[in-house]
Write a protein that binds this DNA or RNA. Structure first.
Lengths: 166, 166
DNA sequence: TATTGTTATACTCTATAACTATA
DNA sequence: TATAGTTATAGAGTATAACAATA
């Protein structure tokens, strides 16, 4: 995991110093029996790896998820997109503004409801999404390698099941 | 600025509306094969449940983790605490300021190093931590119930192992 | 020179309220 | 009345740089 080529922007002075230091053995106390604590640390690691892997495209996880879902559901409304991803409608406005400025998405008038926007990827957005999927695949492969394939599959099964019901 | 009394447990208008709506079937596309997506959603759920469960004490996850680790390692320095929890040193300053103002923690002079602070819980902080652990236990029980005991144990095993090496 | 705690700034994200134009 | 999109604001949390005191 440490022999990986690192984007210099992604490694802070803090992190560099941390690597040099030998680990103190500090007790976690009750934290050790909280799944949430470990899930949070894992999630942060995953997102940082994702951000690093997609840094060349300057796309963050929220942006990737928005592009992906629009790509899979052309004509989707902002409300339905926000509901699907559990992003606030207000937050989504800014995410879309940015993606639109970069030429990846467009808000078309909805045929049924004049309050609503039908979201679409531009041709450039489709090209970008294809590129992003390739990069994201590399991230996922790194994740499988880090966790081990069995653990990865177990975790995906457990959380996918949770996501479907939640 | 709203002067309304804030109850974090309160369900927002957004959430209430969301529950009323029937679920549209929007495709996740490539997101469906990203563990990070599901882990993020799960982590958000867990933290929200934690925040709700500890709302009466007005303690958030980061504050709980700081109190817990100080409680288990009296005399710990801010640097070592920050390293342990992967919180920025700069951020920890504010967290401790707030906990200190509420009378739960204290910064004592370190016996060895005059740059450093030895962190301690006050008697009131110890009492509070004991109370928080009881509440956090209820959250954890809810988590086990939600996930199922087998899934819970699997997930804890996988991520604890990851946390130890990362 | 390096580290500890601190202050400061910029940015991401969450949460909430309020407004407009439609329905 | 309610919903879709928007604007605005407050507050976490992350990331980073720089500084004084001390090592």
């Amino acid at each position: 995991m440490s022999d990986r080529k690192l984007d210099p922007r992604a490694v802070s002075g803090e992190a560099r110093a941390g690597r040099r230091k030998e680990r103190k053995n500090v007790k976690l106390g009750a934290l050790d029996s909280h799944l949430g604590y470990y899930v949070r640390r894992f999630q942060v690691w995953v997102f940082q790896d994702f951000i690093r892997t997609l840094a060349s495209a300057d796309i963050r996880p929220a942006q990737y998820s928005v592009l992906t879902v629009i790509g899979a559901n052309p004509g989707l409304s902002q409300s339905d997109l926000a509901d699907t991803l559990a992003i606030e409608r207000a937050r989504l406005v800014h995410v879309l503004d940015k993606l639109e400025k970069r030429g990846f998405t467009e808000r078309h008038p909805s045929p049924n409801d004049r309050r609503s926007h039908a979201l679409h990827l531009t041709p450039e957005g489709q090209k970008m999404l294809k590129h992003l999927k390739a990069l994201a695949g590399r991230h996922e492969a790194h994740l499988i390698e880090t966790l081990g394939e069995d653990n990865y599959k177990s975790a995906l099964g457990i959380f996918r099941q949770f996501g479907d019901q939640s």
